[in-house]
Design a protein around this nucleic acid. Structure first.
Lengths: 219, 219
DNA sequence: ATATATCTAGGGGTATTCCCCCAATAAAAT
DNA sequence: ATTTTATTGGGGGAATACCCCTAGATATAT
């Protein structure tokens, strides 16, 4: 129960590491077992020593946090990762979460929240700063809204019929099969296809499918 | 400043609606302007009356909450939606968020949290129960993990060269252009293409691109 | 009401993809 | 050392996609 949580702090700003250190040294259940100032050092450290949790800066020199996270998660899956960053950037957050981080907090996080985050993540749960949560949720919604409201800027509105054709194209139907499926002429489908190519500014089917998926134009 | 927030409550359990009602009637800044017990009624209500916020049960009879949400968001974009549900199900949460809901809380939410949620959403921000946040974050992480492991399972390993070709295909290059780009024969590219079709079990270029993006094969 | 967009469909032609066959060399795995 | 896979390349042909043109009927929006 009263086992100490072994922590490795990885951040390129020494002062920041010192700050973390001084916050954590008062805690009986937490022990800082190492410090790293760049990505490769983290991997190197874990080869020889053990850590329960890595406090990992997302923006590290040489090898960025995402890469480090990927590697740690792969080779040392017992070691939890609590990402920490100055920036509340959606891309950073999702990237590192997708690569195995268990939590994400900002650098302006206070002492109490830091401790809570560490203990929560160490217990196998996840922790996110409130601001981070907002960011993620917003982007979750934005992605769909952008495509739903047809964003009027990049991709002109795709008509109902065109969308039906597009859906089948993505599902690997040929023009003939689409015509059969929708009970229309082959020439009509071709017409829709070329409209789609023009509207989406694509050169061929590959582009049609890529743009569709990138912008989540269907579903 | 002291404008009242007009709320429409939509839930098929009358007792629950009553409960909400009694919680909200003590609040000076909140007014329940309508009650609905199924989906279509919500749309019907908004045709004649106005509401700032809909407290919307995700699981409604006749027309489920997601559909209602979509319609409201489309036709009455000023009306905010705070989704409410018994279930902390990842699919429900993402579905309704993707269709324009500004918040999601659970039915076991207490009085104080409910009021906070309503006021937060009404102010144009988003609100999510803590449990809901956890659920979303977990699924965000799981999604990548699943696709990563399925990569080695479902889709046979794609060779380095094949990946290069695949990348260019996704970028709308034709076979001729790929050949030129990679300094190899057109026939060689065709050979790689058919290998890719076979390995990825695709019928055509559309499938190639879709499967590539679904499984994030090019990262 | 009048313009704009959509859905429909055709003729005719070129470009591209996809399929079958084949095979040599090189690299990697067993 | 031997088998397997990757990479390279070819002939030939069928299927599909793409492009140019036109054009009437229906919707939708201004």
């Amino acid at each position: 129960m009263a086992e100490t949580i072994k922590i490795l702090v990885a951040d390129d700003h020494m002062m920041f590491v010192d700050g973390i250190d001084s916050i954590l040294k008062d805690e009986k259940d937490i022990e800082v077992v190492g410090r790293c100032y760049d990505g490769p050092s983290v991997i190197e450290f874990l080869k020889n020593d053990n850590a329960d949790l890595v406090l990992l800066d997302v923006n590290l020199p040489e090898m960025n946090g995402i890469e480090v996270c990927k590697q740690v998660n792969k080779s040392y899956s017992d070691t939890k990762i609590l990402a920490i960053s100055m920036f509340n950037e959606e891309s950073f957050v999702t990237e590192i979460l997708n690569n195995g981080a268990e939590g994400y907090i900002l650098k302006n996080t206070g002492r109490e929240e830091l401790l809570t985050a560490i203990r929560t993540v160490n217990n196998g749960k996840t922790y996110f700063s409130k601001d981070v949560t907002q960011t993620i949720m917003k982007s979750l919604m934005k992605s769909r809204k952008a495509s739903n409201s047809s964003k009027s800027g990049f991709i002109p509105k795709i008509s109902r019929r065109e969308k039906e054709v597009l859906k089948l194209i993505v599902e690997e139907y040929t023009t003939q099969e689409i015509a059969k499926e929708l009970f229309i002429s082959l020439k009509t489908v071709e017409s829709h296809r070329s409209s789609l190519l023009a509207k989406m500014n694509a050169r061929n089917t590959a582009g049609l499918v890529r743009i569709t998926m990138e912008n989540k134009l269907l579903d």
